[in-house]
Simulated scan of single mutants.
Amino acid sequence: MEKYSRSFQSNVNNQIGKQFEELILAGCQYYRQKQLAEINRIPEHFRVVKTNRDGSFSGRFTGLAQPDFSGTLQGGKSIVFEAKATTNDHIKQSVISKEQKKKLNYHYINGALTGVCIRIKNIYAFIPWSVWCDMKKRYGRLYMTESEAKEFAVKTPGFIDFLNYQNEAITYETY
């Protein structure tokens, strides 16, 4: 019974992740149509090893994980961010791999707008990279709760408006 419970939860989490990504992609499309930004999903480094007769295939990852999205904002500034969703009431800093952290740090140091677009239960937020990296000092632990994420909440008018903070004190100068 436990096996089926884990399998069901895995399917639920997978669906939530797909829906979350679709909402981010809708935001990217909105910014593109408004000529505010050109942001794209970075594909995984992947190679097909075997193709089966039924159309399924076996494959393997060929490179280390990259951040999920990157692009250019109106005015020329780069944007690079990772996307993470959870059904828990908190999100751990460790959901970002060492390689993703390395890449995000590099972009941050070079002046890109960097962060982590998250969904914690029903809160959608864009956490600036400096805040994400400073969780231990800021919150006394290596995770952020749903209520703490509210400070960085973004609007969701049919898409995740990750460049438009509800909290004006932390709005990035993107428009």
Score class of each variant (00 low, 15 high):
residue 4 Y to L: 10
residue 5 S to M: 08
residue 7 S to W: 09
residue 7 S to H: 09
residue 7 S to V: 00
residue 8 F to A: 06
residue 10 S to Y: 10
residue 11 N to Y: 06
residue 11 N to D: 10
residue 15 Q to S: 14
residue 16 I to L: 13
residue 17 G to Q: 09
residue 17 G to T: 01
residue 18 K to M: 03
residue 18 K to D: 07
residue 19 Q to E: 14
residue 21 E to P: 04
residue 23 L to I: 02
residue 24 I to S: 04
residue 25 L to H: 01
residue 26 A to N: 04
residue 26 A to K: 14
residue 28 C to N: 15
residue 28 C to T: 05
residue 28 C to A: 09
residue 30 Y to L: 01
residue 34 K to D: 00
residue 37 A to K: 04
residue 40 N to R: 14
residue 41 R to H: 10
residue 42 I to K: 06
residue 43 P to C: 11
residue 45 H to F: 13
residue 46 F to V: 03
residue 48 V to Q: 12
residue 51 T to I: 06
residue 52 N to W: 12
residue 53 R to A: 13
residue 55 G to T: 11
residue 58 S to V: 05
residue 58 S to C: 03
residue 59 G to R: 12
residue 60 R to G: 02
residue 60 R to S: 08
residue 60 R to D: 03
residue 64 L to Y: 12
residue 69 F to E: 02
residue 71 G to F: 10
residue 73 L to C: 11
residue 75 G to R: 04
residue 79 I to E: 04
residue 79 I to Y: 06
residue 81 F to E: 08
residue 81 F to S: 07
residue 83 A to S: 15
residue 83 A to F: 09
residue 84 K to E: 11
residue 85 A to I: 07
residue 86 T to Y: 11
residue 86 T to R: 08
residue 86 T to H: 08
residue 89 D to Y: 13
residue 89 D to I: 11
residue 91 I to L: 15
residue 92 K to S: 14
residue 94 S to T: 13
residue 94 S to R: 12
residue 99 E to W: 08
residue 100 Q to G: 11
residue 102 K to V: 03
residue 102 K to S: 11
residue 104 L to P: 02
residue 104 L to R: 04
residue 107 H to C: 05
residue 108 Y to G: 00
residue 109 I to S: 06
residue 112 A to W: 00
residue 114 T to Y: 01
residue 114 T to F: 01
residue 116 V to W: 01
residue 118 I to V: 15
residue 123 I to L: 10
residue 123 I to W: 09
residue 123 I to E: 12
residue 123 I to P: 08
residue 124 Y to G: 00
residue 124 Y to L: 01
residue 129 W to R: 01
residue 137 K to S: 15
residue 137 K to F: 00
residue 137 K to G: 05
residue 138 R to W: 01
residue 139 Y to E: 02
residue 139 Y to V: 07
residue 140 G to V: 07
residue 141 R to A: 05
residue 141 R to I: 01
residue 144 M to I: 15
residue 146 E to G: 00
residue 151 E to R: 08
residue 152 F to C: 07
residue 153 A to F: 03
residue 160 I to E: 00
residue 161 D to K: 03
residue 162 F to Q: 05
residue 162 F to S: 04
residue 165 Y to S: 09
residue 171 T to N: 04
residue 172 Y to M: 00
residue 173 E to L: 02
residue 173 E to N: 14
